[in-house]
Design a protein around this nucleic acid. Structure first.
Ligand SMILES: [Mg+2]
Length: 337
DNA sequence: TCTGGGGTCCTAGGACCC
DNA sequence: TCTGGGGTCCTAGGACCC
């Protein structure tokens, strides 16, 4: 019988930082933004010590400082996490080829062996070779395994298969499902659906009327713990690449905005050229001071890796904004054709 | 106490064509 | 001249995840 495992490194980003700064062990550590809680930014990861103060991912750094003045604040260092991620995945790949990497610190594994045995082997290999601890969820499919790893934290193993699903999940709120967030949970609640068991018994047609033709059936499947997607070890090609920047202070000068769009687009075009991924469209994103976000997309006449054509599209897209209000964020995204 | 950055997928409306 | 249906492309926005 095939089982799916979901491996998730515990407090990954914070753990990587503590590994290279052992003196931080046992202290509340917050990684986010540029590591300066007097500036704009949110928490990427808080370690377990910091979470005891109510700190969590997505919380503004300013708030975190107020709630936990003794915390150590560190800037995000993506290269370090990408490096650590490669180390972890290498350890996993030495154990199994049936591995689907999911972000920096997560992976799905398919196995025909005893899943608990494989899980323990993974945990000790990752710990011995990288010094990081991880949790492992076991399921019949990716959805079950992913939710199970949440229950396994920290450093544990948890089994959630079709057999356990109704008992373990039935009475929980729909928001605990992977793919249902605050907005969808609220919308479901307005339809009288609060618990996973109620979602499992819901009428697809009725949900489709509210959520759309594909999302309706998918939601009911979620409620039942059904997921037919396979574990795929084929690396996926990115469909888009983007850059965005929140200014330290709101910007009123349109020249500053257009200079930033040009800079970002040039970098993205360089990547398009060097990786030979033609760009099919460019999206410019502006977030105005009251946190209202607008996008303008411009399709290229034909997909291109040429900086001139990509820049041209970005300038056209930007030109469709009225930049007569303070701006807090600017971003550029390219879609590959 | 104002709310990051990098991604994926879905929905919906209008244009346009058959 | 009006009605109607379906398919695809383009654009804008939304929700979610790490
Ligand atoms: Mg993790």
């Amino acid at each position: 019988m095939t089982a799916v495992l979901h491996v998730d490194v515990d407090e990954f980003v914070a753990a990587v930082e503590v590994l290279r700064r052992p003196e931080l062990k046992g202290k509340p550590v917050v990684v986010g933004g540029r590591g300066d809680p007097s500036k704009r930014g949110v928490i990427s990861t808080a370690n377990y010590e910091a979470r005891r103060y109510g700190l969590h991912s997505g919380m503004p750094l300013r708030t975190a400082l107020r709630k936990c003045p003794g915390a150590v604040f560190l800037p995000v260092d993506r290269e370090a996490y990408e490096h650590a991620s490669r180390d972890v995945m290498e350890v996993l790949r030495a154990i199994t080829d049936a591995l689907e990497v999911w972000g920096w610190d997560e992976a799905f594994v398919e196995t025909n062996d005893q899943p608990e045995v494989v899980a323990r082997a993974i945990q000790s290999a990752v710990s011995n070779k990288t010094g990081l601890s991880c949790s492992v969820g076991i399921g019949d499919n990716k959805l079950q395994a992913k939710i199970a790893s949440g229950f396994a934290k920290p450093a544990g193993i948890y089994r959630l298969t079709a057999r356990e699903w109704p008992e373990v999940m039935g009475g929980r709120r729909t928001e605990e499902l992977w793919g249902i967030g605050r907005k969808s949970a609220r919308k479901l609640s307005e339809l009288g659906i609060d618990k996973v068991s109620e979602l499992a018994a819901a009428d697809e047609e009725r949900l489709s009327l509210s959520f759309g033709p594909r999302t309706g059936p998918w939601l009911v499947a979620l409620g039942r713990g059904v997921d037919h997607s396979r574990v795929s070890s084929v690396p996926r090609r990115a469909r888009s690449r983007s850059l965005e920047l929140t200014f330290d202070e709101d910007v009123e000068d349109p020249h500053v905005i257009s200079a930033e769009v040009t800079r970002m687009t040039s970098r993205l075009a360089e990547h398009s050229m060097s990786s030979d991924r033609p760009v099919s469209s460019v999206t410019v994103k502006i977030r105005f001071a009251p946190f209202v976000t607008r996008t303008r997309i411009r399709r290229l006449p034909e997909p291109s890796i040429e900086v001139e054509a990509i820049l041209e599209a970005a300038i056209v897209a930007l030109g469709r904004f009225e930049l007569d209000r303070p701006v807090r964020l600017v971003g550029v995204k390219v879609d590959f054709g």
